[in-house]
Write a protein that binds this DNA or RNA. Structure first.
Lengths: 205, 205
DNA sequence: ACCTGAACACCGTTCAAGT
DNA sequence: ACCTGAACACCGTTCAAGT
């Protein structure tokens, strides 16, 4: 994984290695600081080799971002499976899984939602995977409505609202916009809990 | 404003012109596509001239972003002034002003919150201006609590929750993540209204 | 005090050539 | 089928020199 030479002329699994190396670089610097040449050097391959597997830097970034969405969807899916019968708990756990993503992979989250990779100029496969975590929220809401726990509003519109809340909190955290003492994991858990509770119970007296 | 020559050796107001030209470029391309050299050429000045006024590209971007925060704060302030006695309406109008920012200046919003300009490595003046729109929300909540309209929870924590909701919706819109027919201005108004209403009234039956 | 031009070390991308 | 190296047009940044 470290930068260096390799034995064979052919790498063998260059495509995956590029994505993996990109994810690794994103742990310590944000997407704007990651270059195609740096990723190639990290693997020990010429700086033009990536073009055999990705038609541009943009499509490599899209592949990295796609992995991010897969991680996010997997985490929220686990939250749903843990409480198959309690929509309220599912929403709470999914929310915390979403916000955890901001703590664990802040730069990756910003690549995924930074605007550089708009859904317009990405593959249909990418778009589908990108929307799965959103669909997971929609299912929770539909479940909650059908079991009579949630109010009977349009589930798709409602899940945009829920998504917005979780997404906003995650983005503010990962951007370092909440400079108070909200840095600790425990503090963030409390905050995301409060956020979901407020949405559930309302703000009015 | 168009790219071209100028008469004098000295520009006169280069610092402001650079920020203005940057804002203009941000209308049609995102921050990753804006280069110091392009901004300089747009004004008709050598590509090293900006360094007399900004110590790096980062600080020019920070100045542009700062203007974005000034616009955002001004818009929410107007919403507050319009309804001096109704915290509920203030929250609704502020929310729509925040979301409008995503419609009017999507790329600028992503520069402001994209993570490239973390509060850590920016001037204290920048940090202060960046937090003003957040403080505006806090004041609305305090106002609502003291007039007995809102529940009596911690206002600062609560305003992070409200901020998250508005911020998330704004970021999802400006990133083009909501690819359904939620593109029209009218549709977005309804959606931000629903978002604030849900937060106010809660989701539980 | 403010601006320029050459220079440096980096980019992304293309293309003919090597294995 | 996969990878390399030279080449091109771009970057951000520094610095001696010009007005």
């Amino acid at each position: 994984m470290a930068s260096g030479k390799r034995k064979n002329y052919h790498h063998g699994d260059l495509k995956n290695s590029l994505v993996e190396a990109g994810l690794e670089l994103l742990r310590h610097q944000d997407a704007s600081g990651i270059s195609l040449r740096a990723v190639a050097k990290e693997i020990g391959v010429s700086h033009t080799a990536p073009y055999r597997h990705f038609k541009s830097k943009h499509s490599l970034l899209a592949a990295i971002s796609q992995r991010g969405f897969e991680i996010l969807t997997e985490n929220t899916r686990q939250a749903v499976d843990k409480e198959p019968n309690d929509a309220r708990q599912q929403l709470m756990l999914s929310g915390q899984a979403y916000v955890d993503m901001a703590v664990e992979h802040p730069k990756l989250l910003h690549l995924m939602f930074g605007g550089a990779l708009s859904l317009r100029d990405c593959s249909t496969e990418y778009c589908q995977i990108a929307q799965n975590s959103f669909l997971s929220l929609t299912h929770i809401l539909e479940n909650g409505v059908s079991t009579g726990v949630f109010k009977d509003k349009s589930s798709t519109e409602m899940s945009v609202v829920v998504w917005s809340l979780l997404h906003g909190l995650a983005m503010l955290i990962s951007a370092g916009q909440l400079d108070n003492e909200i840095t600790s994991q425990k503090r963030i858990r409390e905050l995301s809990g409060l956020a979901v509770d407020t949405l559930l119970n309302g703000l009015l007296k």
